[in-house]
Design a protein around this nucleic acid. Structure first.
Length: 219
DNA sequence: TTGCGCGTGCGCTATCCCGT
DNA sequence: ACGGGATAGCGCACGCGCAA
């Protein structure tokens, strides 16, 4: 098997606190740092990433010491900038990827809205000051993502417990408790409700049917 | 159908090359 | 000589083919 696009290995110098936070987040999500960066690149428009503040390089005193464990220089200490290393498709700039990872951290901290302008950016028109700008490109991306990741509505509707588990995204045979069930339903309902920007009447209807079946089964 | 071996790709870590 | 960036190498996961 050969790949058409070779991945490139990026070295991203950053403050040790930033590196630790990113690695903690990756560990918490059970993914690697590259996955975090790719996720942000997938769902956040490039213009937003470009505008996001760059966490920047480590300061002059922020250095890590590495002791070589083998080779001719075994035992020799190396001082270098704290860094993150990721393998991704070529063509990205280090600052851009550092911003992307900063967005991942911001989202994890609950900052679910990303402003399209920074303090240094040219002043916005008076009527737009202090408001988030809705990027049409972002809306299209999000709709595509929701469409791809959502379950395919069942042609014959939700007729069995297995169908219900499928619609709610649980593996076959799983017996979710009431709290897990309600939490999953609420999350999916906010996405598929016809009033939502990404809503779908058919999916919402099948969600309700699935919930009914599982609630009856749990009773 | 299952188990085994092989090949390939990828992530992570450590090392080494080269510019300053 | 030092230190940053690039990459080599190791180990793991997964897909595929084949045999039992």
């Amino acid at each position: 098997m050969t790949q058409d696009i070779k991945k490139h290995s990026y070295t991203i110098p950053c403050a040790s606190t930033f590196r630790d936070a990113v690695m903690d987040l990756a560990a918490k999500r059970r993914v690697n740092v590259g996955d975090l960066a790719r996720s942000v690149l997938l769902v956040v428009p490039q213009s937003v990433i470009d505008e996001f503040p760059d966490p920047g390089e480590p300061d002059q005193h922020d250095r890590e010491t590495v002791i070589l464990k083998s080779g001719t220089a075994k035992g020799r200490p190396w001082r270098r900038k704290p860094r993150l290393q990721v393998r991704m498709a070529p063509g990205f700039e280090v600052e851009f990827m550092r911003r992307a990872l900063a967005i991942a951290l911001a989202l994890d901290h609950g900052e679910t809205r990303v402003l399209l302008h920074s303090e240094e950016a040219p002043p916005a028109p008076p009527e737009a000051t202090g408001r988030e700008v809705v990027d049409p490109e972002e809306i299209v991306r999000l709709r595509t993502i929701v469409s791809v990741l959502s379950f395919d509505p069942l042609n014959d509707g939700v007729r069995s417990r297995e169908d219900a588990l499928y619609v709610l995204g649980f593996p076959p045979g799983r017996i979710p408790d009431g709290e897990t069930l309600r939490a999953r339903f609420r999350m999916l309902a906010t996405i598929h409700h016809p009033d939502s920007p990404h809503g779908d009447h058919r999916r919402m209807s099948q969600l309700n049917s699935a919930m009914d079946i599982l609630k009856r089964g749990a009773a």
